[in-house]
Amino acid sequence: MQESDRATVEPAHDKAPGVGADAPTGSLLGYSAGLLFALLLTGASFFVAQSHWIWGPGVPVGLAVLAIAQMGVHLVFFLHLSTGADNTNNVLALAFGLLIVTLVVSGSLWIMAHLNANMIPASAIMEMH
């Protein structure tokens, strides 16, 4: 863009570019909907954990699904993460953060489970002496 064009795009004012943009961050309806969803999901989590409606070994999976859903609700309704253009960088950073978190948690669990499985039992070590 040439200098002459720039002058027509940004009229002279005494603020740096980008200062003073007053974009609303949310609405009462948004926060209330978020709270409602969060309460419903929390209630569902407690119900799943304490009742016998779900097959026992499946309960942790159900709880994980509900927890992830609730994190999504918090991200969208409280942290205002969206698909909007101003949010592209935030979403990409979140994706990278999720990758690292997944690697750290699942990697630790995987490695430690293998170490546990391959460990010589303490009684066997005693017999070796």
Binding site: V9, P17, G18, A21, D86, T88
Partner: peptide, 10 residues
């Protein structure tokens, strides 16, 4: 955020 429309707001 995609480079159009000038610098992103602070």
């Amino acid at each position: 955020g995609r480079g159009g429309g000038g610098p992103a707001p602070v």
